[in-house]
Design a protein around this nucleic acid. Structure first.
Lengths: 128, 128
DNA sequence: TAATGAAATTAGAATCATTCTAAAATGGTG
DNA sequence: CACCATTTTAGAATGATTCTAATTTCATTA
């Protein structure tokens, strides 16, 4: 895929996502962007997020029952809390070769989520 | 978690999912169930899918941009086509211990998707 | 500089999956 | 049977995202 020149908002949004260590939803990106570009439309945010995603400049993370979240592309994995969906970064290194061997077939990439229960959710669990 | 007795539709839906080697959406479960139970409501399907999921009797798989799909619980992983979202089963065995070691923390479970491009999508890719 | 055309942006409607609501049906248990 | 909890139901509501068609922007060419 040939990467096209980025647009004004494309650049802004990419910068926002790269700078953030959270995992922003489209809505959160929209709010953050508004501070710098008051007039911008929500559709523009979705347009650009989709474009950036297709160009593989950002990652999209989906967890059941929550809005998609966007993340910088640099290789890393995630720990998702089973209770509240809280997402943390973790890096297990590049497992591609290993997984290909185990699967017996070549892959383009993989998506690995570790599931745990965060401190807060563990407390709540106990109460019951 | 103590498993409760299953309800009439709960059983039907669980059986449907266990029997199917596809990865059914709620809508597909609804259609299939209708053949055996013509009057059943879509809400009932969602109710039961959610209950079964909470009781960990079925799995829920979410891939960005598509409706959630449901799967039997037996341990296995998935290969997702990057182009069309087609989902195949693959079993890499239980990597829990290995992943815990790599992550340096205990986990409850994990969710691993291998990404590839299916034959059909590879053809299409070429055409461009 | 004016004209052209492609791509980006916009506002709002539309869609789709899913959840919610409140009422009705069902199913044990005493 | 009477009771109460649970399940089911139909349809409305919600929330995230996409679509649409008009408008704006911007680079390129005449």
């Amino acid at each position: 895929m040939v990467l096209k020149q980025m647009t004004k908002y494309g650049k802004e949004i990419l910068a926002l996502i790269e700078a953030s260590h959270d995992h922003l939803t489209a809505e959160q990106v929209f709010h953050a962007l508004r501070e710098r570009c008051p007039g911008v439309a929500l559709a523009t945010v979705y347009n650009n997020l989709n474009r950036l995603w297709q160009e593989e400049r950002i990652r999209k993370i989906s967890v059941e029952g929550m809005p998609d979240r966007y993340d910088r592309i640099r290789r890393h994995d995630h720990v998702v809390c089973k209770g509240c969906g809280r997402l943390l970064d973790v890096d297990l290194g590049d497992l591609t070769a290993q997984l290909e061997r185990a699967a017996g077939r070549p892959i383009l990439a993989y998506d690995l989520k570790l599931i745990d229960l965060c401190q807060a959710c563990r407390e709540k669990e106990k109460e019951r």
